[in-house]
Design a protein around this nucleic acid. Structure first.
Lengths: 275, 275
DNA sequence: GAAATATCAATCAAAATCAATCATAAACAA
DNA sequence: TTGTTTATGATTGATTTTGATTGATATTTC
């Protein structure tokens, strides 16, 4: 008797590939989805990359980009395309991870302004630190990060980048574990920028994963200055794993109630990015 | 390993169809169920795929799609159909490239068959090793790689993955340098799989970048068994940096001229994947 | 700055897909 | 059986998509 597991599409895929049957191409929708997905992930796409990855002709990819541009899903640039502000807003409606995006960008920009030319910096994995990258261009930086999602963007902007490596956690796209710790210990930083899930007067900075907390803590201890990036939704939240007390890092936040601000200011320096 | 599920006689029927048993076909409602099931799983179906998988004619499949569309169960697009209301966003970003794919896939599959359950393996950065990933599922592996492009795909297939980290070379999407070396030294491998740019009787395995050559060499030295994956275009090519002699790794290749094979076989074990 | 290289938009022929039609095969009822 | 209905597969020409080519434009390199 032969049994087949329909939940495992590997069998399925293999048959198609192995027997080299039809379907060795992408439908128009699939190409469009592929392009947008890649854009979302890397912020920019190159036409030549898309040609290779989708096995479609350059003409077709160009047509795809033209059409997607007319749908305002992306913006064409010489050699490829970039994300428009429009799609970012669409995401923030549906995806939790990118909620409060414009605030994140504001926080990110404020954080980037603290960096001096030639600094060596640590960038935590996460969506807020990701938003800093466009503001890091032409600053002659050396960046160390444990965030896989940052690498491509950093590279796009021509920033010299060291990825720590280690065990990959897909959920946060962060590397953690002993190898990561060992790698970070090789470096010293002028500044480090960390994301957190909770800010609390008493419990300090917290995040769900203890392993990630350990990484953040370590990076901070190896930096001359430490900054935590957060948006107002994190205020008075407490996650499972403590990173450190408020005193150990300065806070950059989009907005904060006055009374909370007063409390926090007793413990650390707080920069509020107000519109 | 093949998993089995008798509860799905749709797939079962389909397999019989694939193996071309005469006289077997699907009833209309079975085809409809099959189409919808596939749609649900893949988000997208191509007409030609359905024709082959159900052994029905193109006309019939078209009629099926037309009817299912009138029932609002799907939406037709040029060349196939998509789920109604569903955005394709959730699809994975695994590379869809099909250029020279079949040789690479064959080599990759042959390589993957050498892996035993529970092995710890090193996967070199590169497109051929990338193609191995779909065949690594459910083998309870630990994979170490210096190839950034492999990480996402490995993760999609649920494979525990350690990335070496280090300095990122965007051209080959490989990490190199001292940090990479240090990271690799933390591990021991049952098998390692390496890509190369040149195979030569006298000059051995070669690749353009000395730093990458050093990584490959190191990984091989820490592995109980080493395999080089190549296609026939690499035969008698010599690149700048030597990795090691032919003797130090076994070769898996799609096809090779007889006289060259004889020469190589005096030095190492060669597995030829071609029919 | 000029030359070399890469990208672009427009065009056209080829290929794939489509809807419509028709003849045949199967399923069904009397 | 016979006739009727339904489903199927093949064919056709129209339509859409695609890939290659071209000369123009932009970018990079020296």
């Amino acid at each position: 008797m032969i049994l087949i597991d329909i939940s495992s599409n590997i069998i399925f895929n293999r048959n198609i590939t192995l027997f080299k049957k039809a379907g060795d191409y992408l439908l128009t929708n699939e190409r469009h989805a592929y392009i947008l997905k890649k854009l979302e992930k890397k912020r920019t796409v190159k036409i030549q990359e898309l040609v290779e990855e989708t096995a479609a002709s350059e003409s077709t990819i160009r047509r795809d980009l033209t059409e997607l541009e007319s749908q305002q899903k992306l913006e064409r640039v010489f050699g490829g395309a970039i994300l428009t502000g429009h799609i970012l807003k669409e995401q923030s409606l549906t995806e939790k991870s990118t909620q409060n995006l414009s605030e994140k960008v504001q926080v990110a920009q404020a954080a980037a302004e603290l960096i001096k030319k030639g600094d060596s910096i640590f960038l935590d994995a996460g969506t807020t630190t990701f938003q800093m990258i466009p503001f890091l261009e032409n600053k002659d930086l050396v960046v160390v990060t444990n965030g896989l999602n940052l690498v491509d963007a950093l590279n796009e902007y021509g920033i010299k980048t060291y990825l720590t490596g280690g065990l990959y956690k897909s959920k946060t796209s962060a590397f953690v574990g002993s190898q990561t710790v060992q790698a970070i210990k090789n470096y010293r930083f002028d500044i480090c920028f960390l994301g957190v899930n909770g800010l609390h007067e008493e419990y300090g900075y917290t995040t769900p994963d203890p392993e990630e907390a350990a990484i953040k803590q370590l990076a901070s201890s190896l930096s001359r200055k430490s900054f935590v990036l957060a948006d107002h939704s994190k205020i008075n939240q407490v996650s499972f794993a403590k990173i450190m007390d408020l005193e150990n890092a300065m806070l950059i936040i989009d907005s904060i109630p006055t009374e909370t601000l007063d409390i926090f200011r007793k413990k650390t320096s707080v920069k509020v990015v107000h519109e």
